[in-house]
Amino acid sequence: MSVNQTLSEQLGHQLFEQKHVLVTAESCTGGAIAAAITDIAGSSAWFDRAFITYSNEAKQEMIGVRLSTLEANGAVSEAVVEEMVEGALHNSNATLGVSVSGIAGPGGGSKEKPVGTVCFAWADSIEWKKVETRHFTGDRSQVREQATQYALQVIYDYLSETR
């Protein structure tokens, strides 16, 4: 069993026990977080839906990211992922959400935002919110895998603390 499968299974138990339902809004991971969650049997009890908003237009149309936020900050920014998670929660039946946007490579990086830069936001429907930027190393597949694992781990840690 892979690390993500084990983590997803443990996270599923926590979500179910704490009566949370998860939503994802993903860009650079292309649905990998949702796939990790839905690989677990019974996940329909704790997973509502996934928004795969790879393009800027999808971010705007599907989950309400403002054009002004995209223009001012770029798609790979904490401001954008914060709007992504808020929009995902607003457009779902979920109580907990995660969003991610990054540069998986091999191209697309810059001095300010090199390949491996990934922005995350997590929020619940009450008051908890966490926004963070991380830098991962490796090829495209490795960056996406690390981003997926990190997104799941933060939710797991949050739910462990709120028991």
Rank of each mutant, 00 (worst) to 15 (best):
M84T: 00
S55P: 06
E57I: 00
V154T: 08
Y150K: 07
E86S: 12
G87H: 01
T162Q: 15
V76N: 03
K130P: 02
Q153Y: 06
T69H: 00
C28K: 05
A50P: 08
G116Y: 13
E9M: 13
T117Q: 08
A32V: 01
V81I: 05
A147K: 13
T133W: 00
T53L: 02
A35G: 11
E57H: 03
D39H: 07
L22N: 09
E112C: 01
N93S: 10
G97T: 07
T24W: 01
V154K: 08
A25F: 00
Q18A: 06
I103L: 12
M84K: 00
T137K: 11
W128H: 07
E112N: 04
Q5V: 08
V131G: 05
A147S: 15
E127W: 02
S99D: 07
L89F: 07
Q153N: 12
Q60I: 09
E86A: 11
A25W: 02
Q142A: 13
E145K: 14
K130D: 05
V131D: 05
S99E: 02
G31D: 09
W128C: 00
M84I: 00
M62G: 01
T6R: 13
A151I: 05
G64T: 05
A75E: 12
I40N: 09
E132F: 01
G97E: 13
A75S: 15
S92Q: 05
E17Y: 03
A104D: 06
G105M: 06
S92G: 08
Q149G: 13
P114R: 06
D39V: 12
H90M: 05
H20G: 02
T133C: 15
F120H: 06
L11A: 08
R163A: 10
D48E: 15
S55Q: 08
Q146E: 14
E161G: 10
A75G: 15
D139V: 14
R49V: 08
E86Q: 13
S77E: 03
L67M: 04
G102E: 13
T95E: 00
G108A: 10
G102K: 07
T137V: 08
L7V: 09
R163I: 08
W122C: 09
K59R: 14
E9C: 05
P106C: 11
G87N: 06
S141D: 07
H135G: 11
E26G: 04
K19L: 04
R140M: 09
E127M: 04
A123K: 13
K111P: 03
K129L: 09
A75P: 14
E145S: 13
E112G: 01
G108K: 01
V3P: 04
L11T: 04
Q10A: 14
L89R: 08
E17R: 12
I126K: 14
T29H: 01
S101M: 06
Y150M: 00
A58M: 11
E57K: 03
S101W: 02
Y158R: 14
A79H: 04
Q142L: 12
G64C: 09
V131W: 01
A75T: 14
G116L: 10
G30D: 07
E26I: 02
D124N: 15
E82A: 06
G109I: 07
I103D: 11
S160A: 15
H13G: 13
V85T: 08
A151T: 11
K111Q: 11
K59D: 14
A45H: 14
Q18F: 11
M62S: 12
S101D: 10
G31F: 01
T53Y: 00
E145Q: 10
Q149K: 07
A50C: 12
A32S: 15
F120I: 02
H20P: 00
G116K: 10
L152K: 09
